[in-house]
């Protein structure tokens, strides 16, 4: 559709001159095409550049025999041995705990906004969800630090990290679930009401199952987003080179925290581990991303 004359099959073959496009208009049209295409290419460059860098520099580490099954316990900074399973564990457990807390609250809040919310409270809630989505992770971490560690005297721990991650996950889960619930047609709700099913059971047993795959997709994207968060782990938990299974006490590694602490390691092995951990993190995030987009194809929502 680059010109206004392309579909006029029933016009005379020789176009009247008033229908041809002046040179300057055609030039502007061509130039805009070139420019927007260029913009897209520019946007893709950093993605490819980052991914290629991480894969090229991280590959040697992740194919090492000890990478996935060992920790760095007892490994000297200059040694290339050891692995990151302690950090993988930390990343996953922190995300898991955050998910367990954020998902019920997030789905509850979305149900409130879509099914029950009316008036000023609902408007305020919706507004605050947007604000929460914009709260920087360092601020979320500081808040957990101020409220739980400074004031309540809780020790630094992986659990504190999870609490901060809850704040970062919530808006993503809420917005996504909201969108899915709104896609469920009202006629399904109405026919459930007409069967004498109370509203809350209609929501739990008819509406939520219908929106299920979309909701899970949203949760997986939220998990993918928080697993790379570094600010909360910097503020809320100490680094450990050994495995610590206890999320409620002690230092615990995670992939971002391991990368950050190895930044202080001037040896070649430091950079080896940083990029290895970066690639590992990207692989884990990609698993969630791809899982999410596969799942999003199985929607029960009728057209």
């Amino acid at each position: 559709m680059a010109t206004a004359t392309d579909s006029d099959l029933d016009r005379p073959a020789a176009e009247p001159s008033t229908r041809t496009i002046s040179a300057s208009r055609r030039f502007k049209d061509r130039a805009s095409t070139v420019l927007v295409t260029l913009a897209f290419l520019i946007a893709v460059v950093p993605l490819i550049w980052v991914l290629v860098t991480v894969v090229a520099r991280g590959a040697p580490a992740i194919v090492s025999a000890t990478w996935w099954g060992n920790s760095l316990s007892g490994i000297l900074p200059e040694s290339f041995g050891g692995g990151v399973y302690h950090a993988i564990y930390g990343t996953l457990i922190q995300a898991l705990i955050a998910t367990l807390i954020a998902v019920p609250i997030g789905i509850g809040a979305a149900i409130y906004l879509v099914e029950y919310g009316r008036g000023p409270l609902a408007r305020t809630t919706s507004f605050m969800v947007d604000i929460l989505a914009g709260v920087p992770s360092i601020v979320a971490a500081l808040f957990i630090f101020a409220a739980f560690i400074s004031i309540l005297g809780a020790p630094q721990s992986a659990f504190m990290v999870s609490l901060a991650l809850v704040l970062l996950m919530l808006p993503v889960v809420i917005r996504n679930t909201e969108e899915m619930l709104r896609l469920v047609p009202d006629r399904l709700r109405e026919s459930a009401y007409a069967l004498g099913i109370p509203k809350w059971k209609t929501i739990l047993r008819i509406v939520l199952p219908t929106a299920f795959s979309g909701t899970v997709t949203g949760v997986m994207l939220a998990i993918a987003r928080i697993m790379g968060e570094t600010a909360p782990v910097l503020v809320l938990v100490g680094y450990s080179r050994a495995i610590n299974y206890d999320p409620f006490g002690g230092n615990m590694a995670s992939l971002p925290l391991l990368m950050y602490s190895e930044l202080a390691n001037p040896e070649a092995a430091g950079s080896y581990r940083i990029w290895g951990a970066a690639l590992t993190l990207i692989i884990i995030i990609m698993i969630f991303q791809v899982g999410a987009s596969l799942l999003s194809r199985y929607s029960a929502i009728p057209k």
Binding site: R187, L188, S191, Y193, T210
Partner: peptide, 20 residues
């Protein structure tokens, strides 16, 4: 209202079986 609807059922214009 819930009890009323148990006594008085309704069928809608568009067929709408529960998709799940």
């Amino acid at each position: 209202a819930v009890a009323v609807r148990r006594t008085i059922g309704m069928v809608f214009q568009m067929p709408n079986p529960f998709p799940t």
